[in-house]
Every structure is written in structure tokens, then in C-alpha cells.
């Protein structure tokens, strides 16, 4: 085949760094526990036995942003919480991703018109990778959102780091 043929013993394989990184990142997106409203109930159901988020490597809900890869914004983002979200997002290590779950965090949901205290979409304060529609979305929807995020991560290249800011 090529110059490398027969140069290595068994159990050694070569791949592209991109593929290896993307494989690792996309198969262990640890979420930040971030339940803000009723969407959090569906998120909990997604993590429980019947839907089992662990099948996608995302069952490790972290209590600190410093250990998390993906922020699942599950619920209504009030103005008071928006200031906290900004800070928590800043504390997450790169590469970091955001799933906006449910109508409220997508665009304000039922608080669109008269919610003086609700942010009209979490994308006003942080960049969002995947929007999951629903009020609240069923666990299947959240899983689909997570799978879409995994697809997005697999298209990344270390030549252009951080897929969410325009690269992917």
C-alpha cells in the first residue's frame, strides 16, 4: 500500500486528528444541569431509563459549568436569569454548545407579548447551536436536538475551532 505498510504492530491505527476529536466530542457532550421550568421535567424524563440520554453519551449532567460541554437551556429565561446565563456560559470551557429547548427559550413562547420579565429568546444573550421546538418538547424531540448537535460537532475541523460561531 504505502510507506507505512507493515511499519506498525497490531493494535495501532492511524486516523485524522479531526475525526478523533470529533468522535470524542460528539459522543460525550456532558450537559450542564439547567432546568428553568417545565421543560426541565421533559429533560429529566429524557435522562431517565425509558429514553436514556446515556445512549448518546450525554447522561453526565454536571452541576458546574466548568465540567460541562453543552448547555441545555430548558425553560423560561427571565431577565433575572439571563444575567446568570451569560455568566455561566462564559464559565464553560471551549468547545461549548447550547441547545435551546422549548418555545420559551427559543423566542419567549407564551410570554412573547406580555412577558415584561422574560427574555425573548436565549439567543439574545448567548449563541445557540440547536433549537428544539415544543411546549414543552417531548423527550424524542430533545434527543433529536442532541443528535443534530452531534452531527454538527462531527462536521467541525480544528482548523476552524468552535463550530457554533459561523464555522459549521
Amino acid at each position: 500500500m504505502g510507506v507505512l505498510e507493515g511499519k506498525f504492530e497490531e493494535n495501532v491505527f492511524i486516523t485524522s486528528v479531526d475525526w478523533l476529536f470529533n468522535w470524542a466530542r460528539s459522543n460525550s457532550p456532558w450537559p450542564l444541569s439547567f432546568g428553568l421550568a417545565c421543560c426541565a421535567i421533559e429533560m429529566m424524563a429524557t435522562g431517565a431509563a425509558r429514553y436514556d440520554l446515556a445512549r448518546f453519551g450525554a447522561e453526565v449532567f454536571r452541576g458546574t459549568p466548568r465540567q460541562a460541554d453543552v448547555m441545555i437551556v430548558a425553560g423560561t429565561v427571565t431577565m433575572k436569569m439571563a444575567t446568570r446565563i451569560k455568566r455561566l456560559y462564559a464559565q464553560m470551557p471551549e468547545p461549548k454548545y447550547v441547545i435551546s429547548m422549548g418555545s420559551c427559550s427559543n423566542n419567549g413562547g407564551p410570554y412573547w407579548q406580555y412577558g415584561y420579565h422574560v427574555l425573548k429568546g436565549v439567543d439574545e444573550v448567548i449563541p445557540v447551536d440547536v433549537y428544539v421546538p415544543g411546549c414543552p418538547p417531548r423527550p424524542e424531540s430533545l434527543l433529536e436536538g442532541l443528535i443534530q448537535l452531534q452531527k454538527k460537532i462531527r462536521q467541525e475541523t480544528i482548523a476552524k475551532p468552535k463550530g457554533s460561531k459561523g464555522a459549521a
Partner: peptide
Amino acid sequence: LLPDDWEGHPLRRDYKFPTSYRDMPV
């Protein structure tokens, strides 16, 4: 419930909805 630096009392009938809070649009 509201942040400490919020202005006004929202359940008053004459409350004017704010357009922004700390540079975030409402």
C-alpha cells in the same frame, strides 16, 4: 422575585413595560 435593580412594580395597573433591562431587549 424581580432583580434588585428592577424599576417599578409590574402588577400596578399603570405600569409601563420596560424596553430593556441591563442592555438586554425585553
